[in-house]
Amino acid sequence: MLSDGILNQSVLTGLLQGQSVIHPRGASFKRHLAADLLLTALIDAFSILVIFLLMSFSSTGDVIFIGKDQELPKAHLGEVLERNPIIKVENDKIFVEDKEVNVNTITTELLSLRKLYTDFHPGVEFPGIATIQADRRLKYEELNKIILAMNQSGYSDIHFAVVLK
């Protein structure tokens, strides 16, 4: 019964075993050269991988694109990032929805986005939410320009993009 086991069928015998004095040709005719792979272990490993990847799966998608030089600050109690106008500070440049602006034009750009929203959603109150995406080392005086522009253009809610710890 043991001789029919999978181990006996799957293990290839070594070359030395075939060099018999009594039977010079060895047992080469009787030996199975084809070895069965142990697929159960492979499926176990695959299953673990699938479970791990499913746990880290996010259905919300990527709302923001983070550049390689940018590090977002970390927070424990963040909320789910929603799709709102994104104001990004990167390499001392300010972008509103990927369009480069400066301190003088940021308010105009935010107002045009506000107008676009009210045109597409007639009768709906403007939510006044924007997301700020900035490097963790940025000084507040830089952020202050954006916050003031948001205040002037009617964006009262600020969502700071963070990495959840």
């Binding site: 983070i66 993009a161 963070v162």
Partner: peptide, 8 residues
């Protein structure tokens, strides 16, 4: 990535 929501 998440967000910390504050007001002006």
């Amino acid at each position: 990535v998440g967000s910390l929501n504050v007001k002006q």
